[in-house]
Amino acid sequence: MIKLSDVSYAYPDTDHYTLTNVDLDVPQGEVVGIVGASGAGKTTLAKIISGFIPHVDGGALSGRIEVDGINLPESTLAIAVSHVGLVIQSPFNQISGAKFTVREELAFGLENQGVEREEMATRVGEVAKLLGIETLLDRSPYALSGGQQQLVAIASMIIMRTPVLVMDEPTSQLDPGGTRMVFDVMSKLRDSGITLVVFEHKVELLREHASTVHVIADHQIVASGPARKVLSDPRLEKWAIGTTRYTRAAALAEEKSLLPKSTELPVSLEDSIDVFKGFKNLKKG
């Protein structure tokens, strides 16, 4: 669904590459996670996969970028956005500024596509329910808390029903319950065939919802694989991404010989219940 080959990129007026020789392959109908340190190039990659680079930001882009059968750099932004939606990192900047209510804001993209009024209203209702923002529909998109604004930004992209959704730290300002809700929505969208690429720092949630995870460091993709394997990799500390407390607790317990050495440390709550339940039995037996 998404295929990047040998992609390199430098921002305008800079003398260095932010990304070099990136290869990425995302199959259709999966949730794929991408992690990386602050400034590693996550947002840059998100913009490349959604056509904002080069169509908006310019700069020096090379390599091949194909999303949903479209060669993005050779296409236009208008075509790109009908195939791939980007939830940008700062929800405040996602809001169009052209609308007075959240309801109109959510309908804005559909309106531009000439979708009929009735269908528009139905889809606004659906997406608002999906994300639990029904009570905000008549408010101004600016008279919201940071987290509420983030939910509106996510909703405004989901409503477009693009085959690919790219989300740049979509839960950064959400409360823990809201974060879980958004990840559950991602899994639901995946079940309906949508392909999702999510850039996240929340390792626990990625472990629970992503099939594959890629790591960006040193301007490249340095590790890729199944979520549990990549997210328990000790090199995550060196890459400044960090592991969950579950992983750290198990690692320390192994170091103190309280647990047998494992091949793959636990990443999520469920992983660790398995591991530490074993601990109880081991000591009793």
Binding site: E204, T244, R245, A249, L252, L269, S272, I273
Partner: peptide, 23 residues
Amino acid sequence: RVEAPQLERLASSLGWKSHPMNV
């Protein structure tokens, strides 16, 4: 809509009575 920290959730799932706040 808040949850306990990770290891507190683990301790409680394991039936511990203590409340570990860190690794």
